[in-house]
């Protein structure tokens, strides 16, 4: 059974068709890329999978559980986590709190226990603080634990966003343009980094990206979107030489 399955997912914004008949069969452990020009509907697909938008038509299922109609937090609890194109950390909160919030659904105490500081409150808070600190130290962010997230340098904020996503305990990680604003050198590091987290946390990853270098370098399979429709799908080599893709995505006589 595929980990994630999308069948004929279609989404309209008013009269505009943002995604049409999107199909996807994703096996556990895969790393695939979705590329396409601006406005091709890439981020919309992430929003449909994570429940931010509700698909107009079609079905998306994770491990056989239907996702369409569920709220984002329910979907996250089923094991899908994501990052954002423009960083969306909880800026005024500490780095540690950012990670602890991702454990929201896994803390076992009632509001009453929290308000009166009785029962499981102490042990659960301790458990989650330790867990969050451990995760932060894996990514060498623990030195910043008490710092406001907004005060972190750009690269660390991107890293923290991934840490926060991992803290929800996902099986499937959706990365939305992780290389935005990075130079070629940093992109090389990012490639290693993505491979590393996939092996370390046993993840399946879907990547949206503009940087062809990154996508071609690490993705095992690539889907190309244009105006919401899938125009090509296959191995990086096939995509690179596909005339349709070259025309739609890279422009006529496109380099890269």
């Amino acid at each position: 059974m595929p980990l994630l399955q999308a069948k004929q997912v279609t989404h309209y914004f008013g009269g505009l068709c943002a995604v049409s008949d999107f199909n996807l069969d994703l096996a556990a452990g895969e790393l695939i890329g979705i590329i396409g020009p601006n406005g091709a509907g890439k981020t919309t697909i992430f929003n449909l999978i994570t429940g931010v938008y509700r698909a107009t038509r079609g079905s998306i299922s994770m491990n056989g559980v239907e996702l369409v109609g569920k709220t984002p937090n329910q979907i996250t609890q089923l094991g899908i986590a994501r990052t954002f194109q423009n960083i969306r950390l909880f800026k005024e909160l500490s780095v540690l709190d950012n990670v602890r919030i991702a454990n929201y659904s896994r803390l076992n105490y009632t509001p009453l226990e929290a308000m009166l500081h009785v029962g499981r409150y102490r042990s659960e808070e301790k458990r989650v603080a330790e867990k969050a600190l451990d995760l932060l130290s894996v990514f060498r962010l623990d030195g910043w634990a008490e710092e406001r997230a907004a005060n972190l340098p750009y690269g660390s904020q991107r890293r923290l966003e991934i840490v926060r996503a991992l803290a929800t305990g996902p099986q499937l990680l959706l990365l939305d343009e992780p290389a935005a604003g990075m130079n070629p050198n940093e992109i090389m590091q990012l490639m290693d980094f993505i491979h590393w987290i996939r092996d370390q946390f046993k993840l399946t990853i879907i990547l949206i990206e503009h940087q062809m270098r990154l996508v071609m370098g690490i993705c095992e399979r690539i889907k190309v979107l244009d105006f919401g429709a899938t125009i090509a799908e296959g191995l990086p080599e096939e995509i690179r030489n596909n005339p349709k893709v070259l025309e739609a995505y890279l422009g006529e006589g496109g380099e890269e």
């Binding site: 984002p72 609890q77 954002f84 909880f90 454990n103 929201y104 896994r106």
Partner: peptide
């Protein structure tokens, strides 16, 4: 006590970014 609990952090994250908060399982 409420503010400094799991639920309070959830409330704070709603202030910061409601959609991100929902997507982080709150």
């Amino acid at each position: 006590n409420f503010v400094y609990s799991n639920f309070g952090r959830g409330v704070l994250s709603i202030r910061e970014d409601e959609i991100a908060s929902d997507l982080m399982s709150v």
